[in-house]
């Protein structure tokens, strides 16, 4: 699949932002006043910035309000609703916390739950696609949630939680890659099933339907970058999980090491998200005899 920069920026930033909101809603850390203001401002900047980035890949963003209507069947619509609901709930919660020093516990828990739901709905947009075997696995939503919790914990500065969730996210990431590889290998779809010419012989493409490129080839038959996939996986896991854990163990939260850990983690998640798209094989590629 085409690793569109706007979608990568969106999923990485909003994942971090909503991850931060999950922790803030349940009261980790117990911030009030200006420090709470800073935390909430950062969370909203990330979440809203991510959502704004996501509209850049739309052909007609002026009709985006319609995306709130089809929650009964569409995960994308559910994501839109969950994200706005979270932002509204947490705005009220944050306002009371920052300006009145009042912690509305119920509202905070509800906001946290909605933030978690938002991350889950984002991941389900990809998980639901049977056409991309690598994404169609329970590991995908687990990874998205684990990364949001890890990133959020890292930003809140709760070192113990950050350490554990960074390790968990790293483990889940390796599991998702391994399962994804086998799902791709074991996919039942082939050029033979795609054309219905099963059993009659060995099929190969003799000539493509068009001499130039087209939307399908640039969007779904994206193959650039697979060559370096293994190297990028290693780089991603080190910067996303390994290095931040090491830096937290050395310097704890709040200092220069912590800042470096945050930067490293975001870069690692960005790389992992790029691979998430670039490595994903869509079954329609079989028509072009891309195996």
């Amino acid at each position: 699949m085409h690793p569109s920069p706007s979608v990568i920026v969106f999923t990485v930033l909003s994942g971090l932002g909503f991850g931060l909101l999950i922790w803030l809603g349940v009261g980790f850390p117990q911030v009030t006043g200006w420090s709470a203001f800073g935390m909430f401002a950062l969370a909203y900047l990330l979440a809203v910035g991510g959502l704004a980035a996501s509209t850049f890949h739309l052909g007609n963003p002026q009709r985006a309000l319609l995306a709130f209507t089809q929650w009964q069947t569409s995960w994308l619509s559910r994501e839109a609703i969950a994200s706005v609901l979270t932002l509204v709930l947490m705005a009220v919660f944050g306002f009371a916390l920052v300006f009145f020093g009042t912690r509305l516990y119920g509202l905070g828990f509800l906001g946290s739950f909605c933030a978690l739901l938002t991350v889950l709905t984002t991941s389900m947009i990809y998980t639901q696609l049977k056409t991309v075997p690598r994404w169609h696995q329970p590991g995908t939503p687990i990874l998205f949630v684990a990364l949001a919790l890890a990133g959020g914990a890292l930003l809140t500065g709760v070192t113990v939680a950050a350490l554990w969730f960074l390790l968990v996210a790293g483990g889940v990431q390796i599991m998702v890659w391994t399962i994804g590889d086998s799902l791709y290998r074991e996919s039942k779809t082939s050029l033979a099933t795609a054309t219905g010419l099963d059993g009659s012989g060995d099929i190969r493409q003799m000539s493509p339907p068009h001499t130039g490129s087209n939307y399908l080839l640039t969007e779904m038959v994206y193959v650039v970058g697979r060559k370096h996939a293994q190297l990028l996986r290693i780089a991603s896991i080190i910067t996303m999980s390994g290095l931040p854990v090491l830096l937290l163990l050395i310097g704890g939260s709040g200092g220069f090491a912590w800042g470096l850990a945050v930067v490293s983690h975001v870069a690692g998640v960005g790389m992992s998200r790029w691979l998430f798209f670039a490595e994903a094989e869509h079954v329609a590629r079989h028509y072009y005899d891309q195996r």
């Binding site: 049977k130 969007e219 779904m220």
Partner: peptide, 14 residues
């Protein structure tokens, strides 16, 4: 249509 392209991803036939 907002042109998000998700339907094209969901179609196995391209």
């Amino acid at each position: 249509c907002i042109g998000c392209g998700l339907c094209a991803w969901a179609c196995p036939y391209g």
